[in-house]
C-alpha cells in the first residue's frame, strides 16, 4: 500500500516535470533566442543555456526598431477600445439575460453562443466591403468594432454567470429603498461582480491585443499596424535580425501572460459557468 502510494507520488512528479518542460520550452525558447547573438542563431550555434549576461537584449527591439513602439501603442488603443465597448454592452446584456424573462431571450442566448462558431475568415470579406464603403479601413476604431463582435459575447457569458450568483433579495431590497433598474445595476450589481468584470476585461483586452486577421486585412497603412501585424510581417523577412524579432515577440507576449496568470482563477470560473449554462 505504502509502496504503491510512493509510486503514485513518483509518477505524479515525473509527469508534472514533463508537463512543465513541454509547456515551458517554447516560451523559454523565445527568451533564449532573443538574447542569443544573431550570428550564432544563423550558424546553428544556439545553446540550451544562453549567455545570461545578454539578458538586456530581451528589449533590443525598443532600441533598433522605432516602429515597434508605435505598433504596441496601436495595439493598446485597439485593445482598450475593445475592452470598453465590449464591457459596456456585455454588462447590460448580461443583466437582461440574468434577471429577466423576455421574448427572444432564447434566440439571443443562441446568437451569442453562435459567435463562437463564426469563422473570421468568412466574416472578413463582408466586413471588408462594409468598412470600405463606410471609409473605416485603416482606422483603429474599425478594428475595435470588429473585435468587439467576438469579445462581447464571451464577456457577457462571464458576467451573466457572476450576476446569477447575486441573491434576488438584495436587488428587491434596493428597489424598496428607491432604486430603479439602472441604479440597481450600477450601485449594487456592478460593484459586487467587480472580480468577474476584471476577468472579462482581461479577456476582451487580449482579444483585441492578439487579433491578427482583421488587423492585417483592414489596416494597410504601416503606421497604423498593430503589433500582431507588425511582428507577423517579420516572418520570412530576413532583413530583420532574428534576435530582434524575438525581443519583439517577448515584449508582445509579456503583458498577456502576466495578466492571464493574475486573473487565471476568475477567468476560468467565468468561462466554465458561462459556457456550461449559456
Amino acid at each position: 500500500m505504502i509502496a504503491r502510494r510512493n509510486l503514485g507520488v513518483g509518477v505524479r512528479t515525473l509527469l508534472a516535470t514533463l508537463l512543465v518542460i513541454l509547456a515551458g520550452f517554447p516560451l523559454y525558447w523565445i527568451l533564449n533566442t532573443a538574447i542569443t547573438p544573431k550570428d550564432t542563431l544563423y550558424t546553428g550555434g544556439q545553446r540550451l543555456i544562453p549567455d545570461v549576461s545578454r539578458a538586456g537584449h530581451l528589449f533590443s527591439i525598443l532600441v533598433t526598431d522605432r516602429s515597434f513602439l508605435r505598433w504596441i501603442t496601436n495595439s493598446t488603443v485597439v485593445a482598450l477600445g475593445t475592452t470598453v465597448t465590449s464591457l459596456l454592452m456585455a454588462t447590460l446584456a448580461a443583466y437582461a439575460l440574468s434577471r429577466y424573462r423576455f421574448f427572444g431571450k432564447g434566440i439571443m442566448g443562441f446568437g451569442f453562443f453562435a459567435t463562437q462558431m463564426l469563422p473570421e475568415a468568412l466574416l472578413v470579406v463582408p466586413l471588408y466591403s462594409l468598412f470600405a464603403s463606410l471609409g473605416m479601413l485603416n482606422q483603429l476604431y474599425g478594428l475595435v468594432l470588429a473585435n468587439t463582435a467576438f469579445a462581447m459575447p464571451v464577456a457577457t457569458f462571464i458576467l451573466k454567470a457572476a450576476m446569477d450568483a447575486i441573491p434576488y433579495e438584495m436587488e428587491e431590497s434596493a428597489r424598496v429603498d428607491g432604486c430603479g433598474a439602472l441604479s440597481i445595476l450600477q450601485i449594487m450589481v456592478v460593484p459586487l461582480i467587480a472580480p468577474s468584470m476584471a476577468a472579462a476585461a482581461v479577456i476582451a483586452f487580449f482579444d483585441g491585443w492578439n487579433e491578427y486577421l482583421f488587423a492585417t486585412t483592414f489596416i494597410t497603412d504601416e503606421r497604423k499596424w498593430t503589433a500582431s501585424t507588425g511582428l507577423a510581417s517579420f516572418i520570412g523577412d530576413f532583413l530583420i535580425p532574428l534576435d530582434t524579432v524575438f525581443s519583439g515577440a517577448f515584449l508582445f507576449a509579456v503583458p498577456a501572460v502576466v495578466f492571464f496568470l493574475v486573473m487565471q482563477r476568475r477567468i476560468v470560473s467565468g468561462l466554465t459557468a458561462g459556457s456550461v449554462k449559456g
Partner: peptide, 19 residues
Amino acid sequence: SPKKRDIAFVFQSYALYPH
C-alpha cells in the same frame, strides 16, 4: 412601484449590501 408606497421591507436574509 415599491418606492412610491412609503414602505420599508425587512428580508429574512436581511439583504444587506455587502459592499
